[in-house]
């Protein structure tokens, strides 16, 4: 799935960078679920759900349209990272509004950025193993977007448990706490969610 679409995606990215607004719109749409997932992990953690991840995604898109001229990369991974940066910036702005003055420093944005990177698996991967070639990176980026889209299509409980456990890396105990369910039930939700996710990704 990655192969055919990734060349298309690459083409689309090139057009978007060249100034094609439609191409940019298309490529942004593909990132929608992914950004939403990232936003929801952060909003969940810091705002206890006091903001709508979809709104953050919309704002990110708007900013991306405004700032596409400032994007200096060429690869898809760079583009995704760039979007993450915008999202981190917007989230930081948003958090400050809610959390107030106490965290009003540049570190909030930095740490958000880092956390988002981390949630995307890029961070650790680059650290522990340097095996990733550019092409595997692209594949991974592709998979990431596809997964985010598939996750977005899951029933909310399934999605939540998978995000909390597998993206944010919370232990089941905390996942259960966050979802106000028992550990047993979140574990079961999780297993079913995984199977459903597989089905979404690969219907065979």
């Amino acid at each position: 799935m990655a192969d055919s679409s990734s060349t298309a995606l690459h083409e689309q990215l090139k057009q978007a960078i060249a100034g094609d607004r439609d191409a940019l719109g298309g490529i942004l749409t593909r990132h929608g679920s992914y950004l939403k997932m990232l936003a929801s992990t952060q909003i969940h953690q810091r705002l206890r759900g006091k903001a709508d991840p979809s709104d953050m995604v919309q704002e990110t898109f708007l900013e991306a349209h405004k700032q596409i001229d400032t994007f200096r990369g060429t690869s898809h991974a760079e583009f995704t990272g760039w979007l993450r940066g915008i999202l981190a910036h917007l989230l930081a702005k948003h958090f400050r509004k809610y959390i107030g003055t106490q965290q009003r420093d540049i570190r909030l944005e930095q740490s958000l950025n880092q956390e988002l990177d981390q949630a995307s698996g890029c961070f650790e991967r680059g650290l522990v193993a340097k095996l990733d070639s550019p092409s595997t990176k692209l594949m991974q980026n592709e998979t990431m977007l596809a997964l985010a889209t598939a996750l977005d299509a899951l029933p909310v409980d399934y999605r939540t448990v998978i995000i909390l456990r597998n993206i944010q890396g919370l232990p089941f105990k905390e996942v259960a706490l966050a979802m106000d369910k028992s550990v047993d039930s979140v574990e079961k939700l999780w297993v079913r969610g995984l199977a459903k996710l597989k089905l979404e990704m690969d219907p065979q």
């Binding site: 995307s120 650790e124 996710l197």
Partner: peptide
């Protein structure tokens, strides 16, 4: 499904 997640987001 789990393996896909790992592939996409790494291991947490």
């Amino acid at each position: 499904g789990l393996a896909m997640l790992q592939k996409g987001f790494g291991v947490k």
